[in-house]
């Protein structure tokens, strides 16, 4: 009984206001058209803003910089050219110092293979260079222009030793011999191979001297030939006659 009396003392919460909606649910996807006056008022007071055009320059700083560069082309050109000239100077000096420049068609290869090839050539006193084709324009090396398309590599050296280059690159399938510039003279692939087979310059000079000497000595022997035979015959004749008598 004690429990029942305890329950009777509890005060239940009763709110003062209770909200309830007796209309149908509000349909958000297709709202009801508003009142005519309101619609007219809204139509009249719509702001007339200019149409927004997408401007890539507004969002992209790189494009903005480029646009600025185009506007101020004089300053930008000078700035760029200074650095380009510096790089071109290095390349041109490299080309001027080396008397042998041999061009190769490059095949796709990994950096490791490239380094291996570079090292192998370097150990033999040769250097592998990768130069942009644009470097050669307006220089004396423009004669190489037929070779200057696609991917090129150049083996350069101050000393002329083509046979060594051909022997080394023969085992490298990544490098295909195209031609070259040796002692300011253009060579095709066949020409280079023929050049490589030639012996040393001193041997060739010796051969030239021998050839030059051969002609006069032959002329001399031809001129003397008849007199010698005549004198020999006469000697024999004299001998025969003295023996008989």
């Amino acid at each position: 009984m004690a429990k029942m009396s305890a329950l009777g003392k509890v005060k239940l919460f009763t709110p003062l206001l209770i909200q309830c909606r007796h209309k149908s649910k509000h349909f958000i996807q297709r709202p009801r058209p508003s009142h005519l006056d309101r619609r007219i008022f809204e139509a009249v007071t719509v702001p007339l803003l200019p149409e927004k055009i997408h401007d890539p320059y507004a969002n992209c700083p790189r494009l903005r910089r480029r646009l600025q560069a185009v506007k101020e082309d004089v300053v930008q050109d000078e700035m760029e050219n200074a650095y380009e000239n510096y790089l071109m100077g290095i390349c041109r000096r490299m080309l001027e110092e080396n008397r042998m420049i041999i061009a190769f068609q490059l095949m796709a290869m990994s950096t490791r293979e490239k380094v291996d090839i570079k090292r192998q050539l370097f150990l033999n006193g040769l250097k592998l260079k990768f130069v942009s084709n644009a470097i050669f324009s307006d220089t004396k090396w423009i004669n190489l222009s037929p070779l200057l398309c696609s991917h090129n590599a150049y083996v350069v050296s101050p000393d002329v030793d083509i046979s060594r280059v051909i022997k080394l690159t023969h085992k490298m399938p990544e490098l295909i011999l195209l031609g070259g510039l040796v002692n300011d003279q253009l060579f095709t692939r066949e020409g280079l191979q023929r050049y490589a087979k030639l012996p040393d310059i001193d041997v060739l000079r010796g051969q030239l001297v021998a050839v030059l000497n051969a002609t006069p000595s032959r002329t001399k022997s031809l001129l003397e030939h008849h007199q010698q035979t005549l004198s020999r015959n006469l000697d024999q004749y004299v001998k025969d006659n003295t023996e008989k008598s």
Partner: peptide, 10 residues
């Protein structure tokens, strides 16, 4: 390589 139009082959 010294002939004309070899760029495409290479």
């Amino acid at each position: 390589p010294f002939a004309a139009n070899v760029k495409s082959v290479r």
